[in-house]
Amino acid sequence: MTQFLLQRILQAGLVMLIISMFCFSIQGTLGDPTRELAAMSMSDEERASLRESLGLNDPLPVQYGRFVKRALQGDLGTSYFFKEPTLDVILKKLPATLELSFAASLIIIFVSIPLGVFCAIQPRHWFSRFTMAVSVVGISIPVFLTALALIFIFSITLGWMPSFGRGEIVQVWGYWSTNFASWDGIVHIIMPSIALSSIMLPLFIRLVRAEMLEVLSSEYVKFARAKGLPAMPVYLKHALKNTMLPVITVGGVQIGIMVAYTILTESVFQWPGMGFMFLEAVNRSDIPLITAYIMFVGFLFVVVNTLVDLLYGVINPMVDLVGRRQ
């Protein structure tokens, strides 16, 4: 276990090192940040001295060396726009994104599993055929279209739902800002999370269905039936748990990816999360923030993978965490 975690920490470090190198190497193409920090009419000398004060005039290796040295002390630079340490900015935006992803995951889990299981148990039922047909269409609808349709129907036409923002958020544990502590907050998170889940939902329904079908045709399900167990316990106990194994590996990583894919949803709903922050940072050439965000996402991927592996290990007794199946 210790070794497993140690490996993952090393892996995270390596991922972040590579990402930071990549970010620095493409820095030149990210644009000139002084354009966003100053008026068009500012003189060239002023602009040059601003560049100097930002340390942008040094050769790239020098800048990178400085960056790594500071990063090792936990300082990932200061955002040009927010004028705060990039890590603070990201951590401030993190709850919004994580809560959005969490709500979307809940939707995915509570919709895709029952639907997928149903479609597997009753493959010929009209509702199964309908679900599969809809999921084929759904997989090809871009998320911003779903989001705009939701806004048009439920905000503009019906006036039931707020169309943007997080609404009333409550600070908990001193640091975390949550949508789930007030009715207004919950109402605000509904449409964005539906929009976000819509990308993955068809995929998950099909995944659950396919895995369930495979498990249903397995010997141990047949054996469980032969033991005299009624159909439902066989489906829900023997088949479902086994179905969840591949769903967790594929799905867990997908949900992890979703955290990084919230950009579109966040920008349509003006959701003040990391994805939107990143988009803005790119527009503003906020290089330290861009770099820190991408590194953070890399770190997040390793964390998600680790969590998925841990969860997989909890469910599957055959897995040895060091990665070798017994």
Binding site: I151, F152, G159, S163, G165, S267, Q270, E280
Partner: peptide, 18 residues
């Protein structure tokens, strides 16, 4: 004062009374 970057979202916010 809320910044809304996306122009369609901004219009939707107005039309929905947000």
């Amino acid at each position: 004062f809320t910044p809304i970057k996306d122009e369609q979202t901004r219009v939707a916010a107005l039309l929905s009374g947000g």
